[in-house]
């Protein structure tokens, strides 16, 4: 709710204050948007233009050479494929494990459930970095370094998603489950025919959260996937930021291609994500 009341805005001082606020917000928004705009416009520039001492915002001549070079010479396709491959399998694995676990916590309620639930919650305290080296050692013992499945396995369950699913399933009345039981539906049918159709919003939130987490993950793929052919987009842009062999405009294209999917996904689920952020923020 606004601090400044409508009555105050009628006075001259209030009007100026509001105008000043708008001005400030517009300037702020321009600053916020500047890097992305610069990146987008930079993808159409030539390399000489990007490293000239007097930069200009708009490209002198719009060319898509950088895109052609990036996609033909630097194998972005491969990186995109790797990223989406891993994202897809982690999403499938997490949806499977969390749906079953959340259903058990919320509707079956075994006696040992409380303890296991607390155990799941405890993993939220582990930092990625504390897990990094032991996981690496474990995976190298299992001979799975360089296999994308090692990363999929590591991320196959996420306590945060289980908590979100559970709290949503809790709001589905138990009567529905009991009624279906009398009608002779098994647990599998209960999940696919009752729980899942009723929980579409939480599925979209959790799948998006998982996608973003995996898409932005950096340290795990860096350790687990040393081969260049397995690199995800994040590793690719990290490694290219350290080399001088690639022209700057191609680097810009790589960066822009990396930014695009996440921005599109966020826009798609803008409302859901913001709800997710605020509930996650409140729950800590």
């Amino acid at each position: 709710m606004a601090v400044i009341q409508n009555i105050e805005l009628k006075s001259r001082k209030g009007k100026w204050l509001l105008r000043f606020i708008y001005l400030f917000l517009v300037v702020g928004a321009i600053i916020q948007f500047f890097p992305l705009t610069w990146l987008f416009l930079g993808t159409f520039k030539t390399n000489a233009e990007l490293i000239s001492a007097v930069p200009s915002l708009l490209p002198a001549k719009w060319s898509i050479d950088a895109y052609i070079e990036a996609f033909s010479k630097y194998k972005i396709w491969e990186n995109l494929y790797n990223t989406f491959f891993v994202c897809a399998f982690i999403i499938i694995a997490q949806t499977f494990t969390s749906t079953l676990a959340a259903f058990s916590f919320s509707k079956v309620r075994p006696k040992s459930g409380n303890f296991i639930y607390m155990m799941f919650l405890g993993t939220q305290m582990f930092s990625t970095t504390a897990l990094l080296f032991p996981t690496y050692i474990m995976m190298s013992k299992m001979g799975m370094i360089g296999s994308k499945w090692s990363w999929v396995l590591c991320s196959s369950a996420w306590a945060y998603a289980i908590v979100l699913y559970k709290s949503f399933f809790d709001s589905i009345p138990k009567d529905l489950i009991e009624a279906s039981e009398i009608d002779g539906a098994g647990t599998f049918r209960q999940i696919t025919n009752i729980i899942m159709p009723l929980s579409k919003p939480i599925y979209s939130v959790c799948i998006l959260n998982t996608f973003m987490a995996v898409y932005n993950d950096f340290l795990f793929p860096l350790m687990l996937l040393p081969d260049e052919k397995d690199w995800t987009l994040m590793i690719r842009i990290y490694s290219m930021s350290n080399t001088g062999d690639i022209p700057d405009n191609v680097k810009y294209v790589l960066l822009f291609v990396t930014c695009l999917p996440s921005i599109i996904f966020y826009l798609f689920a803008q409302k859901n994500i913001q709800q997710g952020i605020s509930t996650a923020g409140l729950k800590g």
């Binding site: 079953l100 916590f105 075994p110 040992s112 459930g113 296991i116």
Partner: peptide, 8 residues
């Protein structure tokens, strides 16, 4: 309940 929890 435990069977369902097993994968996670």
């Amino acid at each position: 309940g435990l069977m369902l929890l097993l994968p996670a």
